[in-house]
């Protein structure tokens, strides 16, 4: 009896100890996330089920009416579609260009350090201001981009690129790619640093071509970095608000708005509905990221 008790006691203690062992290491992170991030998340989710007056006064529960109203918005589906295209196109182009840029800037060439500094500038600048300066450069009559294209005889007269959705969307996507490139390239560049040189030597001895070496050695070794870069880009591009807000305000109408911009616009007319849009946004980004992670994991097991 005594013996079993003695034997059992340490197991409980060790189990508790074992369960608590990670706390000193990860506790601060959990605390910071719990307090600073999850608290407002709870408020957001709660708000999405409340009837909130325009002043901000909370009247009471609104059931799922905020969601119903949101899904019934005549422009909702179009905005959703804009968002899907926006995220997929921007992330895909960013990744492809970054893979190329990372290789290029990893080459050994004169003044590489300064070139790398130059590459970080779009990342160092605020996204909002970058969008503002692009809007400035795209101005129909005095924008530098239009002036340059006219001077190069690419066009007869300046174009109002941002005035029509069909040209505004590609330009805004280009800006989104532009501001995402430095981070993505830099992440991939950091990934390249971890590839040991011996691997290439071995490939060289095997007589593999440069392209094959890249596909069969570099790319797989870069996978963790690519994974991080894509996930972060998916999230950032989905949540990207300043570019569209600065360049078109989502207009004309809501024709160039994504759901993030739409959420912000709704805040001016219905706070509860806006909170519902926020929750829906969150659900969408989770699905998007989860989908990507599952796909990338499946590929891994295929190999």
């Amino acid at each position: 009896m005594a013996e079993t008790a003695v034997r059992r006691a340490p197991t409980v203690v060790t189990r508790v100890k074992k369960a608590l062992a990670p706390l000193p290491w990860i506790g601060p992170a959990v605390l910071l996330i719990g307090v600073v991030v999850l608290w407002p998340v709870v408020v957001m989710v709660w708000s999405s089920f409340q009837r909130i007056r325009r002043t901000g006064i909370v009247v009471g529960s609104n059931g799922t009416d905020n969601y119903k109203k949101l899904f019934d918005e005549p422009d909702f589906v179009a905005v959703l579609w804009n968002t899907v295209v926006w995220v997929l196109v921007v992330v895909a182009i960013t990744l492809v260009l970054s893979l190329f840029l990372a290789q290029l800037f990893n080459q050994h060439f004169p003044g590489r350090r300064f070139a790398r500094w130059a590459m970080i500038v779009p990342w160092a600048a605020s996204v909002f201001m970058t969008a503002v300066v692009f809007k400035w450069m795209l101005h129909e009559t005095h924008g530098a981009i239009n002036t340059l294209m006219v001077d190069l005889h690419l066009m007869d007269a300046g174009k109002d690129w941002l005035g029509r959705p069909s040209t505004a969307m590609p330009w805004m996507m280009a800006v989104a790619v532009f501001v995402s490139l430095p981070f993505t390239t830099y992440t991939l560049l950091a990934g390249l640093q971890t590839v040991p040189g011996e691997v290439y030597e071995a490939a060289k001895i095997d007589g593999a071509s440069t392209w094959r070496t890249y596909l069969s050695i570099t790319l797989p070794l870069l996978k963790p970095a690519i994974l991080v870069a894509v996930v972060i880009n998916l999230i950032n591009v989905f949540n990207s608000f300043p570019i569209i807000w600065a360049m078109t305000n989502g207009g004309p109408g809501y024709e160039t708005a994504t759901t993030t911009v739409f959420m912000y616009q709704l805040k001016a007319s219905d706070i509860g509905e806006s909170a519902a849009m926020s929750v829906a946004n969150f659900a969408m980004i989770i699905i998007l990221v989860a989908f990507f992670l599952v796909v990338s994991r499946n590929k891994e097991t295929d190999r």
Binding site: L38, W39, V43, S47, I235, T260, M263, F282, I285, I286
Partner: peptide
């Protein structure tokens, strides 16, 4: 833990302003 961490990255602070202000 890793999932929790990843999820925090997904929130758009713009949509959390009310809660952040309250906090």
């Amino acid at each position: 833990f890793l999932l929790l961490v990843l999820v925090t990255q997904m929130f758009q602070p713009t949509s959390l302003l009310v809660g952040l202000y309250r906090e």
